[in-house]
């Protein structure tokens, strides 16, 4: 809480700016901050007539399902590792393609390919699940039909957990490549052309221009994207995993993440307390992670830190 006079002085000075921020503040208060009282559900045994604050307090009982079967470490590890791969490989690929598109000579080619690369974004995970199943089905799948006609041993993808740490990131990249590319491209387009003109006069070739002008200029965007990805690292991409892996227990060892685990636990028993407990675990863990990362960023370059 800022000092009272300091705040009112600021309010007076930047009246218009505050006014311009009113919709945003109202939005997040109503939509996010007030409902946060619901975190308390995680510590109660919910009774319908008693309501949120009348329900009995049960301490950490609702969290028991997370650590009961010694699975917590595995799902936490899976969640973090997958997301790290998504963030690292995803951003690199998107930046790479954005640079190629940005510096490409053909205008029409750029526009057409950019549109087409956006198409996977529209393929919902439900449909992706259908396609993947038909691609890899052991007896009739596209890949195995091909392998069989070449007299190669068919792949038993749906009973081979070791393949999925590759497959899942591949489908993730596929789906998001167009989306991320648009962000980076927009940032690059915001770079003043004067920089390049100057560089060209200095004799910098196209690769040098990319290295010394384009890449440094997109760094803030990159950091924002990474920070947001990290912020939801404990949650992200439930649908991707759920639709691709679903109920296939043979794959869980490498594909189970916190979200899918919590979902499975609640699937047959809608319990407000247990659901809230799962969410809170993700939030607290994610929060610690993000504070650490931000701290490191701030030490190296305070301008890029988020807060």
């Amino acid at each position: 809480m800022p000092k009272k006079d300091g705040f009112s002085a600021e309010l007076k000075k930047n009246k218009i700016l505050f006014l311009m921020l009113v919709p945003t503040i109202a939005f997040f208060l109503i939509n996010n901050y007030v409902p946060m009282v619901g975190i308390y559900y995680a510590f109660t045994k919910f009774d319908i007539q008693a309501g949120l604050f009348g329900s009995p307090f049960v301490g950490l009982d609702n969290f028991k399902f997370l650590y009961q079967s010694n699975i917590l470490w595995n799902i936490t590890k899976n969640t973090i590792l997958y997301n790290l791969v998504f963030i690292a490989v995803g951003n690199l690929l998107q930046i790479f393609i954005a640079v190629l598109l940005y510096k490409l000579s053909g205008n029409v080619f750029r526009k057409v390919t950019q549109t087409l690369m956006f198409m996977p974004y529209f393929v919902s995970y439900v449909i992706l699940g259908v396609l993947v199943y038909n691609l890899f089905n052991y007896e009739l799948g596209f890949i195995n039909t091909l392998l069989k006609s070449l007299h190669i041993q068919p792949l038993d993808v749906f009973n081979s957990p070791q393949l999925w740490p590759v497959l899942i990131p591949v489908f993730y990249m596929w789906k998001w490549v167009g989306y991320g590319t648009v962000i980076y491209l927009a940032t690059m387009l915001g770079i003043s052309s004067e920089y390049y003109e100057a560089a060209e006069i200095d004799g910098a070739n196209i690769f040098q221009q990319i290295r010394y002008i384009t890449l440094p200029q997109i760094k803030p965007t990159f950091i924002i994207l990474v920070l947001f990805a990290l912020g939801s690292i404990m949650k992200g991409q439930f649908e991707l995993f759920y639709q691709l892996v679903g109920s296939n227990g043979n794959l869980y060892i490498t594909t189970d993440i916190i979200d899918t685990y919590v979902y499975r636990s609640l699937m047959f028993d809608f319990d407000i307390g247990i659901g809230a407990a799962g969410g809170l675990y993700q939030s607290v863990f994610g929060f610690i992670l993000i504070i650490t990362v931000n701290f490191l960023v701030k030490r190296r370059n305070p301008e890029y830190a988020l807060f």
Partner: peptide, 28 residues
């Protein structure tokens, strides 16, 4: 009335999907 073993039940449900269903499908 599973209120006294609710979290065990939730944990067990996930174990069943992971270990029992593949057994039932003979895919072990």
């Amino acid at each position: 009335d599973y209120s006294s073993y609710q979290s065990e039940r939730a944990a067990l449900g996930t174990v069943l999907t992971q270990y029992l269903a593949p057994l039932e499908a003979g895919l072990v």
